[in-house]
């Protein structure tokens, strides 16, 4: 019996040891690859397209966003807008993240129809081009490169969105009784090769918001934080949220609030 236990112990060590080492190596290799890619990130192509869209007179009203859209930093100013959202916008009477705000401007200022934008808001695996809204988000995000996250948590309405997002992250439901926190509420979890950030901590939250919008090397597509939220709702076996809804803003507010004070490196690279 004793030797049996010893054998079991030896076996489990043999099994755990190399697997853990392998994961670490693979992570290190992947980090090297990502660092290499970041020097010529394809995200720049989307940034450039977004800049053109930002400046072009478009939509039924033939106005540009540059002359009509206030992202919270003054009319037409994109600098620092990404790291200072979600924030409260009085004209819309809502707390909005950047993507939601851009959609609002496209509808209210340029005269686009929300339904048309919402029909295909994210780049599909086989699409060559990202939707306009993704390019715009990428451009605006580039205006916050190397700035610190500074979401105005002192604003009562933003604090409200943050608290609601926090409650949502803990809300368990669906066929598997999952919440965000099932996968993202403790340190050191992973699924396959993907390390899952603990969004409740400031180190985890920054990993949750860093690199978005991001160029996903699998498939070569550009995706936003809103897409990430939608895809995690799917992983959670929840119905996907409506595009640009308050629910998504709340979750982004929860993560961004926890990441406050840390450096945002701009549009990034994802696996």
């Amino acid at each position: 019996m004793k030797s049996h236990v010893a054998l079991m112990a030896a076996l489990s060590v043999a099994l755990v040891g190399p697997a853990a080492a392998q994961t670490k190596d693979a992570n290190a290799e992947f980090e090297k690859f990502r660092a290499e890619m970041e020097e010529s990130s394809p995200a720049e192509l989307f940034e450039a397209r977004g800049e053109e869209l930002w400046k072009a007179k478009r939509g039924p009203n033939k106005v540009s966003l540059a002359e009509s859209c206030d992202l919270g930093q003054g009319l037409g100013n994109v600098e620092g807008a990404y790291v200072r959202t979600p924030r409260y916008f009085a004209d819309a009477d809502a707390v909005m993240d950047i993507e939601r705000r851009l959609v609002w401007c496209m509808v209210e200022k340029q005269g686009f129809k929300f339904e048309d934008i919402a029909k295909k808001p994210f780049q599909g695996a086989n699409d060559n081009n990202a939707p306009d809204i993704t390019n715009l988000v990428t451009y605006v995000a580039s205006g916050s490169r190397n700035m610190k996250f500074d979401m105005p948590l002192h604003d009562a309405k933003v604090r409200d969105a943050f608290e609601t997002g926090k409650a949502m992250a803990a809300y368990r439901a669906g066929p598997y009784d999952f919440s965000c926190n099932t996968c993202h509420g403790t340190d050191g979890k992973r699924i396959r090769m993907q390390n899952l950030p603990n969004l409740a901590t400031s180190e985890g939250a920054i990993r949750g918001v860093q690199g978005w919008p991001g160029y996903r090397m699998t498939g070569g597509v550009m995706l936003t934080s809103q897409w990430r939220m939608n895809d995690c709702f799917r992983q959670q076996r929840f119905p996907e949220p409506k595009y640009a809804s308050q629910a998504v803003t709340n979750l982004i507010a929860y993560m961004t609030g926890n990441a406050n004070g840390q450096l945002y490196k701009g549009p990034g690279i994802k696996r």
Binding site: S40, E44, L45, A48
Partner: peptide, 22 residues
């Protein structure tokens, strides 16, 4: 087609050139 993004920088006596094509 999108414009390319070209970076070309001397590091010592070696030029590092990177071209991103859309």
């Amino acid at each position: 087609a999108d414009p390319m993004k070209i970076r070309a920088q001397m590091k010592g006596d070696v030029a590092e050139i990177r071209i991103l094509m859309g």
